[in-house]
Amino acid sequence: MNGSEHKIGCAIVGSGNIGTDLLEKLTRSPVLEVRAMVGIDPQSEGLDRARRRGVEASAEGVDWLLGRVGDLGVRVVFEATTARVHTANAPRYREAGVSAIDLTPAAVGPPVVPSVNLAEHLDEWNINMITCGGQATAPIVAAVSRVCAVPYAEIVSTVASRSAGPGTRQNIDEFTRTTARCLERVGGAGQGKAIIVLNPADPAIYMRNTVFCALPDGYDEDAVAASIQAMVVDVSTYVPGYRLKNPPVFDVGPYATPGGPAAGRVVALLEVEGAGDFFPPYAGNLDIMTAAAVRVGEAVARRPLGALA
């Protein structure tokens, strides 16, 4: 018996770097099977690679796909195009009865970080994967805010220059704003701030993330540290290269933060090494997006029929 008959069909829209890395990761999924990959560039390396793996591939874009979702048995689509394209496609997926995992900044659906709020949003037709910085740092803010109030959280994401594509570069403000909002909405911080730095060092550096959380009077250092450590373990179940570079650092304030006065702060120093699927290992920023998206896609595929609103 063919094992794939037990798997749920999915499709990848967008045949660039992100789409191609998704193809590699989904090939290993015990839950999902890629039935189609579509792009708009007939010369695309991603489409070629899909065909070599026996996946139907087309350069005729989403129109081609939407005519075939029934035949191909596609129930989940991963969108790795642009915010504008996804905003246009989103209602069409809904009409076709296909769930969408959105890796663009379109933010049509709620922002989801698998280790934090996936269970709350399993009834959604559209889920947004936020930003790489959000995937890497919101879990830590959430880990702290589940033990004590976090009036203000701030993150610094440093990525290798080579791993930042033209989309990120031309819209760097979108990254800082979207990530900052996610620290509040997903992480539970009173106020969030995000900073991104591009580092051109050769050999390329692994993605680094530093999370600062303001802490209130009477915070429990051991509880905060334990919660952070536990969260890192949770995230590393779907992003194996996600780790604390050093134990959390506690500093005594007082600090006058934009979210109000704080008695102290905790600093978490993280590194993300990519799995080396399609991207080199230094591109942990891209790997964490695709790895998190696969985790969400698998959970969406597993939910009982009829669970959707």
């Binding site: 610094v156 440093t158 580092n199 600093v267």
Partner: peptide, 21 residues
């Protein structure tokens, strides 16, 4: 040695913690 660039002040904490460990 790490070729840090402007804006990476967070790496000062990282380096200091590592040196002390």
């Amino acid at each position: 040695r790490r070729k840090v660039v402007g804006g990476q002040e967070d790496m000062i904490i990282d380096v200091a913690v590592e040196l002390s460990r």
